[in-house]
Design a protein around this nucleic acid. Structure first.
Length: 489
RNA sequence: CGGAGCGUAGCUUAGCCUGGUAAAGCGCCUGCUUCGGGAGCAGGAGACCGGAGGUUCGAAUCCUCUCGCUCCGACCA
């Protein structure tokens, strides 16, 4: 990485001012041939953020605030991940924000892998757009309506079908531009009558929404399958078993739809599935999204699975059926020309005719997933993060802060793990062992290293796997090597 | 939106029924002793009792209104 691409280019760097635009700097750097182009596009490594707890902000609670009814809500409050601002609206504190970002990143990577392209649309939309689709009046009180200073009617977007369709209407004129799948990850607002369960059912929530545009129904089906498979992979990476269930299409309309449901006792909807689903493997292997995905989709839709609304008691023998509760973490729809027609998103086909584009939309509740993952992965002591979403890889507890030998050992391990690129949260507070260990379990980092006077004297530290509780007393080197050799990345 | 509850210190609560000017535990700050699963002792800070009005000599307490939050139902990613 070249911090100063101007070095050695005196004539050019002399002209650089603090106000130099990006373009100017780009030109300067390019003119300076000694700078590798790669450096210009180097991106910051977001995940490499070790932290000493004394310099962090992690307001954990010993007692449970009274408003929290379910495990995930309780644990998120206790672990200092969120603070409620008003009904269904939350601030994300550092720990919660890190988890949210991690989930968002997994979702983004899998969307990109499937060929979808990221955009970002605003939270505030104009009522005019919604009048054209006819939904402004239909949507009811769930839509938060806003009047700006010019008395114009605006709204805080509950979803973005109208806007994305309007974008495509303007720029996409030919079938040659299709297929197209645009997605964004953005905050939305639905003024729920009764928000509850913390971030699982908030009024403000972070959603990934993808919108597919195709020339005909067959192509739209291909787009649907891509998203279907991308969702299987996304949830598998997040450590969740999400079952695709035949679902009601709801007010959004359409005739092909699956909800991805995580089974949990605290789930808000009743669901039914073949009991063989419980043994079914999640989709781990990489997928070629240009291949025919129909067989894969078939594999994951062959076994019966339906939400309450779509459940058909005659479809499956009772002794094969599991009735459970579930959390909806994703929902995919095909809805044809429902928006393209009224909003005029037309393309010219091969025959030169103007036809409305075929659309689908595909949502993942990113902020809801934080709660869903905790519901699916916690114990009496606290959260148990799946490795890919854990806010830090390793929690390092110095059980006797201020003891010279312990400090030296802990500082050393912290340095090594950090240098190796692991995210380490180092509890260097002057606090008691019990408090540190309880906090570590509560925040649920996948690995813990405990360093205390007893072990230091014997030349060992304790390496603990949060999920299993399994502990080993080994040398510091062995612990570092164990973490570096795979487990904790 | 129907039904039911609750607002007292940062958190969890007591006090309210039967009015007399606010209490405890945890957390926080200081000191000492402790130190391998949320320590002990001593001291300290911190609450116009959600807000407004009313009744009363006097209101956290009774009455009215209002705001906020929670739960059940209907609705929803």
């Amino acid at each position: 990485m070249t911090r100063q691409p101007w070095r050695g280019c005196a004539a050019i760097s002399a002209e650089r001012t603090p106000q130099a635009s990006r373009l100017q700097r780009f030109a300067q750097a390019v003119l300076c041939f000694r700078v590798p182009a790669r450096a210009l596009f180097a991106r910051p490594a977001v995940s490499r953020t070790p932290m000493r707890l004394t310099r962090y902000f992690l307001p954990t609670l010993k007692e449970t605030p009274q408003e929290a009814q379910i495990a995930s809500h309780r644990l998120m409050l206790r672990a200092g991940m969120i603070r409620q601002e008003s009904a269904g609206i939350y601030s994300w504190l550092p720990l919660g924000h890190r988890v949210l970002s991690r989930i968002e990143q997994v979702v983004r990577e899998e969307q990109n892998a499937s060929g979808a392209i990221e955009v970002l649309m605003p939270t505030i939309q104009s009522a005019e757009l919604w009048r054209r689709s006819g939904r402004y009046d239909d949507y009811g009180k769930e839509m938060l309506r806003i009047i700006d200073r010019h008395e114009r009617e605006m709204l805080y977007g509950p979803t973005n079908e109208e806007m994305i369709t309007d974008i495509v209407r303007q720029f996409v004129k030919s079938y040659r531009t299709l297929p197209l799948n645009l997605y964004h990850i953005q905050w939305k607002f639905r003024d729920e009558v009764r928000p509850r369960f913390g971030v699982m059912r908030g009024r403000e929530f972070l959603m990934k929404d993808a919108y597919s545009f195709d020339l005909d129904a067959a192509a739209a089906r291909t787009a649907y399958n891509k998203m279907f498979v991308a969702y299987l992979r996304t949830f598998a990476r997040l450590g969740l078993k999400a079952i695709p269930m035949r679902a009601d299409t709801g007010p959004i309309g359409g005739d092909l739809s699956h909800e991805f449901i995580v089974l949990a006792d605290t789930g808000e909807s009743g669901v039914f599935c073949d009991k063989r689903w419980l043994e079914m493997d999640v989709l781990e292997e990489a997928v070629d999204f240009d291949s025919d995905l129909a067989p894969l989709v078939k594999k994951y839709t062959d076994l019966y699975a339906a939400t309450e609304e779509k459940h058909d008691p005659d479809a499956i023998p009772a002794d094969q059926l599991v009735a459970a509760r579930g959390i909806e973490v994703g929902h995919i729809f095909y809805f044809g020309t429902k928006y393209s027609k009224p909003l005029g998103a037309m393309v010219t086909n091969q025959e030169g005719q103007l036809v409305p584009v075929e659309m689908g939309s595909y949502g993942i509740g990113v902020s809801r997933l934080v709660g869903a993952i905790i519901e699916a992965s916690h114990d009496d002591a606290g959260i148990v993060w799946p490795d890919p979403v854990a806010p830090f890889h390793v929690g390092l507890a110095n059980l006797r802060q201020g003891d010279e030998a312990c400090d030296a050992a802990a500082d050393g391990i912290y340095q090594q793990l950090t240098d190796a690129g692991l995210d380490v949260l180092y509890d260097d507070r002057d606090a008691r062992a019990g408090e540190k260990l309880a906090d570590l379990d509560l925040i649920g980092l996948p690995w813990q290293i405990q360093i205390g006077p007893r072990g230091v004297k014997a030349g060992t530290v304790e390496l603990k796997r949060r999920r299993t509780g399994e502990k080993q007393e080994i040398s510091a080197e062995a612990a570092v090597n164990a973490l570096l050799s795979g487990g904790a990345t």
